[in-house]
Nucleic acid binder design. Sequence first.
DNA 1: AGTCGGACTTAGCACCACCGCC
DNA 2: GGCGGTGGTGCTAAGTCCGACT
Length: 837
Amino acid sequence: MDDMDDDDAPLVFRRGGKSASRQSQSNAEAKRTPSSSHNVNGQSSNGQRKASPLRSPITNSKSPMSSEIKQMPKQNASSAVRVEIKSVKSEKKSQVDDEDSEDDKPLSSRLKGAANNVKKEVGGPSHVKKEDSDDDDDDLPLASRMSTKPNHLSEKKPLASKLQQNGSSTSNTNKMKTPVVPNKRPMEKSNSSDQSSAKKQKLSVPSSTTKAKPAAVKAEEKADDDDDIPISQRIKKATVSARKPSSANTKATKVVSSSFKKANMKNTKQMKKSKFSKSTKVQPGSTDGQRKWTTLVHNGVIFPPPYQPHGIKILYKGKPIDLTPEQEEVATMYAVMKDTDYMQKPKFLENFWNDWRRILGRNHVIQKLDDCDFTPIYEWHQQEKEKKKQMSTEEKKAIKEQKMQQEEKYMWAIVDGVKEKVGNFRVEPPGLFRGRGEHPKMGKLKRRIRPRDITINIGKDAPVPECPIAGESWKEIKHDSTVTWLAFWNDPINPKEFKYVFLAASSSLKGQSDKEKYEKARMLKDYIHNIRAAYTKDFNNKDKDPTKRQIAVATYLIDKLALRAGNEKDEEEADTVGCCTLKVSNVECIPPNMIKFDFLGKDSIRYENTVEVELPVFKAIGQFQAGKGENELLFNALDTSKLNAHLKELMPGLTAKVFRTYNASITLDQQLYEETEEGDVAEKVVVYQKANKQVAIICNHQRTVSKTHDSQILRLTERIETAKQELKELKIDLERAKKGKPPLKGADGKQKRNLSPEAIEKKIASANQKIEKYEMDMTTKEDLKTVALGTSKINYLDPRITVAWCKRHEVPIEKIFNKSLLAKFAWAMDVDPEFRF
DNA sequence: AGTCGGACTTAGCACCACCGCC
DNA sequence: GGCGGTGGTGCTAAGTCCGACT
């Protein structure tokens, strides 16, 4: 066991604690501006907004589809899904849905009393082994890990004739009271509880048994080594190690599982219904070729309604101008964007003008955008919005319902006999392109998509969806079972690219690949030690060929800082970078060994971070910069395909993005393990949020500060002040009451009524509580104002970590996952409580 | 080896309904 | 009861990565 000495722990994640100050200022400009905090009204005129399908009942028998197939019993959308484990025994279904009142409390109150800690700094880590990647003999850790346990999922039989349904609401399971579980770490490799299915599929392509050999880096059973510690954590290592596993684990696990039995059974049932199990099982067999499905039935896509001219005239040089409906439509798109930041961008105006002008025609009266006044249309649009707002609840409901009816049939697909939700069955309405950051195409007209633009993918034996627009027809019908899309069209802005219609996140297909993603990331845990050793060796070795050295440094950065790979981009896109495309100007070496990063990453979100790095890395980066212009590539010998090709030699299936998943998930896992203490649910939820936040910071998931942030803070400050004043008075009153004197007049000048000292003491206590709560709300708010927690929860955090933690700590899962996430992560719900990432 | 088409994941923001607070 | 604030949801842009083709 070689120790990660903490001398290499110093990566400073400045972004952690200082986020508030960092952001407040940089956000406005660094972060892309468009529409950010603006009320963009655009969409609404053409843009379809409709009732959320998730909210709707799923058993609408009017749907042609639903009449074709039997549906699963209606699920109880409102009943909470509780974390459960399935198991062995006969089941008793006590369907008591004893919602405990705790669950219904708002977040704010849950936070109470807890989270001052939210503020804490993200530890600055680093590690990097300084040892050789030795012993080559322990391959296939994954394989063995995975096969250790049977997959209970696979034991389930699909309900033969019934159509199963994935998606919308979760089934009504009973809430289970989770037993308390000792906070121990389970035995390393035995926790692969439900992994069996995951080892097939892509991961197995270069199965660890076979090919994984390559460049020396192998998985290694290291009993104790903190390479698998998340970046942000390594620093804490000493403390951690004290808590490492023990032989007691087995016992703990056992006890737990048995105490879960009852619930397990329910869950088994539920799984049948929700049926992820089935596809999970089906998939493997389908490893034949790349087949993703065997039968696929759906109804195609729905189009936005045709444009309804409103006849409102714009003014040109002060005079009203007649426009054709087509011209008016585009003018309206522009008019309604008045309040957005796009209007300040010359590129946007230029692009819009070019496209609109084409529609107006060369010889149109309108010759200059500057002379146009779109206010009449803008105002008309505001009025329309207002009218909509004023509609009665019933009217709104009726409209919603109608829309619902129209759309119901498009909402579902039947994949291998299972009814699954379709993700985006609405064709994108026309509009002006809202590229992010300084996108060269912003403002261009995104033309209307017609059936002739759309290719449909459907099962061979399934009926071809009827084209919803009379007299028109689909571009093409395909029957390609190696892909998961139901339809696509070429992006009108960039015709080389496509827009796809996929199944919803709750579908088995998506669930399956999600699971595979996390399994791959978990696999990295077994390889990471040697990978780190390898790149350390490589960047230390100065005679190494430059490519190799660049690869080593790039890998280091991707690992340490969770940078994205950084594909090359063409001129037609916003100028953003990732690791491989970092420019000389994006990094600054600050002796003795600090590196400052400053660049625009995905979505033109600014990444600004100063970190301490290994000295060899520092030197190497300096050398990569030497003799280059500011605008040249730092890693000139590298691109993502070379980098990924290299990574694949280190671990089957490894690519740059796996590091992000790995570091995010393992950080959560460890944080939860280390930080969760005895306490009430609210306190535990705070621990979770704190861990979540840490991950969001690592991944640089930002959001714009809400428009009302400042006023919210102000309001809280005022409340705190008022409460403090009250407290002061109460204290005086208390003293007086003790002496039998009446209270003083209040701040409002009114005489207060006499109260006993006890009563006043009570009031004091509650005032104190109130102040505490307000202060905490304020801290949390300030702290999270630029941090987006959702993205990591949705995309980077293995849900099994969360579910297992909830089980261990008796936290109702819906405290953490909302309805969509519960549906999306259905596959993770039966995880063993002792699961570790 | 490099390019490009293709498929799929990841991302932040707009909008709206709902809920708690005053 | 009204209103502000928030969480959930939908939307679609912008990434990653693979593999076929040249």
